[in-house]
Write a protein that binds this DNA or RNA. Structure first.
Lengths: 223, 223
DNA sequence: TATCTAAGTCAGCAATTGTTTACACGTTTG
DNA sequence: CAAACGTGTAAACAATTGCTGACTTAGATA
């Protein structure tokens, strides 16, 4: 069980060679954040080592503790960073249902690789470090994401008759989570090799079924 | 190849001293297996420590290496054990679709706790130790499980026209995986606190949509 | 140019973890 | 009963991990 170098499995070269300055704290900080997010999302918290992250970027391990105080702090920074991207304030307004669904299906089926932002962030939100504060962030993001989907489906906190949509939105989100998980964790086929055509089609059906208002003739049925 | 007793009761508390003999290797072996499966499924591979497992059972750590050679061996034993239960040979024949769906929804919505066999095994199949052999087992189990669902939906390896059902079955399985993951990992509501009524209802809709043959008017589709 | 601050490196510590070896206890059997 | 074997324990080893303090170097400034 002697692993040679775990770093080579993830990255071949240091991150974006954005040659600005030779010593740019801001840049290496973001490089560390990027590498950490990838490793945390893909390998989980405890399997990820700070030495591995530092090696990905090509800097010394001590920088992680300098910039993020601890491994836990780096993980939390990853969560808040991903949170800020996944639930953008400028999209606070309710999107249309078809918009939301097509966005999810498209970004979900884009590529089995883990470098798609949405897929990476979804995976990241499933990882737990055991820390209470980090877990709170994860819960908030997941809940907010589901509520946004529910809102697009017609849910309103005031209207009690639409309350069931929150649960249905969370199930819809769970479907996306499950698909991403199965595709990234186990590379089973045909799920992992499915293109946007097949996967997006079936996913669209499911999302429409769950989120479309329970009125007659709902959604597209595509056999 | 030691078959575990099918009538084994899952205990909620860490280790109930089933009074048989003071020193029963077979029994402590199974206790270790049980405790390991819980910890691996809930915490993942690398977060789980052999000392913790041994402490759950109340024995010395060295016994793990004695009975399972290594932590990796214990994990593999958990996988094969769960595999033997989740894909039982006596259910090799194709079940009816409604049977499969109701079974999944019922066992999935039973309890948010992680001690339900199906939920525990699904979580276990998502955990990776990095070992190739263990990953192969995981893939086989997931694939077989999805193919069983697809077969219940009418898939036949010979009939090329039913090929799409495999992908749809894997998406259905992904939904179950996602629900279990979200319920166990993040305790978000209302998903985590949803009873068999609400959760089973929506899950049944999704599974029927994905697995019902695309013929006219299939099943109940109205919430 | 000389200097000062920030950016980064280096070596090592303390704790944890998987694993092994030697030993003790209890059960069976001659 | 006593030897023999199986079951379990205790202590320690080697490797890894997160983290720290002292040191070095690059880049800006006076």
């Amino acid at each position: 069980m002697t692993h040679s170098d775990p770093a080579v499995m993830h990255r071949a070269m240091p991150d974006a060679p954005t040659a600005g300055r030779a010593r740019d704290a801001q840049q290496t900080r973001e490089q560390l954040l990027l590498a950490a997010r990838r490793r945390f999302a893909h390998d989980g918290y405890s399997s990820t080592t700070v030495r591995g992250i530092a090696a990905d970027v090509g800097v010394n391990v001590a920088l992680i503790n300098r910039y993020f105080a601890s491994k836990e702090g780096l993980f939390e920074a990853c969560l808040t960073s991903a949170s800020a991207q996944i639930v953008r304030p400028d999209e606070e307004d309710v999107q249309s249902l078809d918009q939301v669904i097509s966005s999810i299906t498209r970004r979900l089926a884009s590529s089995p690789g883990k470098d798609d932002p949405l897929q990476l962030q979804l995976l990241l939100m499933l990882r737990s470090s055991g820390d209470d504060r980090a877990d709170a962030i994860r819960r908030t993001v997941i809940t907010t994401l589901a509520e946004r989907m529910a809102a697009a489906a017609g849910w309103s906190p005031a209207d009690i008759s639409t309350e069931a949509l929150v649960l249905r939105a969370q199930i819809a989100l769970a479907t996306a989570v499950g698909v991403v998980t199965l595709r990234s964790s186990t590379g089973i086929n045909p799920l992992s090799s499915a293109g946007e055509e097949e996967l997006g089609g079936a996913m669209g059906e499911v999302l429409h079924l769950l989120l479309s208002p329970p009125s007659p003739q709902s959604g597209t049925r595509n056999p």
